[in-house]
Amino acid sequence: MQAQATKSNITLKGSTEIVSEFFGYSINSILYQRGIYPPEDFSPISKYGLQMLVTKDEGLKKYLSQVLSKVSDWLMQKLIQKLVVVVASVGTGEVLERWVFDIEVDKDVGADSGAKEKDVKVIHNEIQAIIRQITASVTYLPLLEEPCTFDLLVYTSRDTQVPVAWEESDPKFIINSEEVRLRSFTTKVHKVDTLVAYKA
């Protein structure tokens, strides 16, 4: 059997779905790999040709779904610039890691026009590489020895209306950080660059 590359049209909506799904799986991976939640709270699921771990905690699932649904809305409206997973110490409140997902969107693509062609399999391969890098980050990132929590920051345009359940936040800097740039993927509508900054 010979694998056939099938090019498919990727609209803004389709790209938004792919990107928000990627965010969900990558946030789950970060939370599992960095030990923010205990491993027993995660259940395995196969995605992108990998064995992914997704949380079973209902509260966390609800929170993530709320955030990602809003992120999807903002992606559709082209208002989102960054999604940041901030890992902070519970004891001191100090920010220890920042997982930054930079989002670039093609301005020519509209909600109903300007679809782009790219094979979904290729996109999944690119995402797979990023997930692998997140998994491998355990090797070089410092061990989180204290209990940690996380927050999701969304960088939006200035004219974005703040929803009821949302509020403005400080960017939660790391005072002395080192950065590692991970791979990126593109749907030709959205391009997502990944960077992890950690306390040196």
């Binding site: 929170y63 709320q66 955030v67 610039q81 960054k82 940041v84 920010v95 920042r98 930054v100 927050d151 999701l152 920051l153 969304v154 960088y155 939006t156 345009s157 200035r158 974005t160 703040v162 359940a165 949302w166 509020e167 403005e168 936040s169 400080d170 960017p171 939660k172 800097f173 790391i174 005072i175 950080s177 080192e178 950065e179 960077l195 900054a197």
Partner: peptide
């Protein structure tokens, strides 16, 4: 990487809870 952002152009939001 540390998280600096231009507040004139961007807004940093997070869920209240």
């Amino acid at each position: 990487g540390r998280g600096d952002v231009n507040k004139e152009n961007f807004k940093v939001l997070h869920m209240s809870i």
